[in-house]
Design a protein around this nucleic acid. Structure first.
Lengths: 148, 148
DNA sequence: GGAATTCTGAGTAACCTACTCGGTTTTCAA
DNA sequence: TTGAAAACCGAGTAGGTTACTCAGAATTCC
């Protein structure tokens, strides 16, 4: 069914990479893209969205690069997906943050919407429950599997 | 984020309509499409998929139409979505029925896949937990809201 | 026999995704 | 001070996908 776009995939991979390399020295796009096998040009655009959302901090100029915007414990995969793909909702006629985004003609709601709302909520709950710290911990448990 | 395609939306609406009108007389596409505000031509194609999945039964010729393939208690929204959109998975590098559909280069799996698998499972669980009978009951509780 | 209906396959316009590319700005290090 | 390394930005685009339409064939009731 409905696929995640590659924005989300790339974003999670890139953020995971930053989390794994966490330290004081910024990590360049070239490093992230190279290590994860992503297009550097494309990733550049995505980093812009992540930066505007406060998920990463950028340092320009030579020896510049990116750092996490806050600790890995406080960044969830939901944060990343929302920054790159917008509100988590499988249909426009559903809700986000309790607000109805769009009606489908019926002023009082429709049964199909019920379904989309429940699905959207379960996706959001799942994504919000996974932090970068969780992913790093699991990755370290399975030795040598830093690839993502 | 990731939107459901209109196939899934139309499918759920059409199946809900059939469930609400459940009886012995077949219901024509024209009726379903008209009542739900869907394109008859397009819906025609979708009904083919639903029929091949056994979710509806068709009767050709004059006074023909469609009937549910089994009772509303035994048809879930997951069945409908799978019939129309294929396996429920947000990324190809995830699993369906416990089988890995595609690897992402890393022979032992990757952390991002963990995320996609969990999300896919939560979507599937939610969709599989909602039957047409549930939707009909809820619709009848909220009087006059048969639209979907 | 004619009308109503499903079935089938081909075709297509519009949109979206996943990029590329060229150029600018910033900053470090020698 | 200068050159290189990097982030930043906006425009452009090929290819794929979606959401259809359409024409015609097959089936069945009245």
């Amino acid at each position: 069914m409905t696929k995640l776009t590659s924005k989300g995939k790339y974003g999670v991979k890139a953020m995971f990479e930053l989390a794994m390399q966490e330290g004081t020295t910024p990590i360049s796009l070239k490093q992230v893209a190279g290590h994860q096998g992503l297009s550097e040009n494309y990733l550049e655009q995505l980093m812009g969205s992540l930066r505007r959302a406060g998920l990463v901090q950028s340092i320009r100029g030579a020896q510049g690069g990116y750092l996490l915007g806050r600790t890995p414990e406080r960044i969830t995969t939901g944060d990343i997906i929302r920054a790159l793909e917008g509100p988590i909702s499988v249909a426009d006629c559903a809700v986000e943050d309790g607000r109805v985004v769009e009606h489908c003609g019926d002023p009082e709601g429709c049964m199909a919407k019920e379904v989309w709302v429940r699905v959207s909520e379960s996706i959001a709950n799942t994504l919000d429950s996974i932090t970068l710290a969780d992913l790093c911990r699991e990755a370290k448990e399975r030795q040598g599997m830093y690839y993502i």
